[in-house]
């Protein structure tokens, strides 16, 4: 376990923002932390970093208990804030050099590591100062600085939220690449981002964790069901196929059919050709994370 959060409660005045939150993060995984804006994600992250005191409970990172204020646990962490702020007069390389000095990195290692990271985030050719950077470039520099000292835990607060689709894809692929050397804990309210790269997902809602599991388990395939769309509407198709014995129903203008074996599937295809039905698409019936979330929230 690289991190464990035990019964953490955080109050701002009388308002309870985190209610008895417990969470453990296994090593070398990408942990998606989803929740709506204002659910308490950033608050929990700031508690993990010792930037805010917890009201009760403990957080342990890499064997070190997090203390509010000056905390040793930060030496194991790389952190990317939701809107990273840098010194505008530095170039990316100069900024990373400052970060390297602060983390007591050996001089012999420093140059090579910085080159490596600039290459990873695609900023090695940029010579201009940070003040000229776009949002996406700042976010990428943010990841580079967070990975600099090979942290055991990389914490990213909404790394993709403010970016265009290209920027988002870049960040997600960098996070995926980072998994080989560290554990990634990132928050997002964009479920499809979590779906793309996460191994595990936890959801925070109104200050409590409402589910936490492996992504695959959460969106497990609804067994032996397949989703069909046709060139005609699903209802028309269903009326034509009514006499068949398969279990069939309509969901959002798609036809969902229970086909338990390969022979049954083959048979069903044959029926479709007999009825002159042209298939537009066919895929196994899985639940999207969004549906999981909606079901839980009901």
């Amino acid at each position: 376990m690289v991190m464990s959060i035990n019964n953490v409660t955080k109050k701002f005045g009388g308002k309870e923002v985190l209610k008895n939150v417990s969470l453990t993060i296994p090593e070398h995984s990408i942990f998606g932390f989803v929740g709506a804006n204002g659910a308490g994600k950033t608050t929990l992250m700031k508690c993990m970093l010792g930037l805010l005191p917890v009201t009760s409970g403990t957080i342990i990172i890499a064997g070190e208990t997090v203390k509010f204020g000056q905390t040793k646990s930060n030496a194991h962490i790389g952190y990317l804030p939701d809107v990273p702020e840098f010194y505008p007069y530095y170039t990316a390389r100069e900024y990373l050099e400052l970060c390297a000095v602060i983390t007591n990195m050996q001089k012999s290692e420093l140059k090579q590591r910085i080159e490596e990271l600039l290459e990873l985030v695609g900023l090695s050719q940029t010579k201009s100062p940070i003040r000229t950077y776009s949002r996406g470039m700042k976010q990428r520099l943010g990841i580079a600085q967070a990975l600099l000292n090979r942290p055991k835990l990389l914490i990213c607060d909404e790394p993709t939220s403010a970016l265009d689709p290209v920027g988002r894809a870049q960040i997600l692929s960098i996070l995926q690449a980072a998994k080989s050397e560290t554990t990634v804990f990132f928050s997002t309210h964009i479920l499809s981002d979590a779906e793309q790269i996460c191994d595990r997902v936890a959801m925070l809602h109104e200050g409590t964790i409402i589910f936490e599991d492996e992504l695959a388990a959460l969106q497990q395939q609804v067994e032996h069901q397949y989703v069909f769309t046709f060139t005609i509407s699903a209802e028309q198709a269903l009326s034509q196929l009514r006499e068949l014995e398969h279990h069939m129903y309509i969901e959002e203008d798609t036809l969902i059919v229970q086909l338990s074996s390969e022979s049954e599937r083959l048979l069903f295809m044959r029926e479709l050709t007999d009825h002159n039905l042209v298939i537009q698409s066919m895929h196994p019936h899985t639940r999207l994370l969004e549906q999981v979330v909606l079901e839980v929230l009901k």
Binding site: K72, Y79, P81, C99, I102, G142, N149
Partner: peptide, 16 residues
Amino acid sequence: EKGTLVILLTKGLRRS
């Protein structure tokens, strides 16, 4: 105000 210290402090820079 800008939050430029957050990154450096979470890297283990001593507050003092």
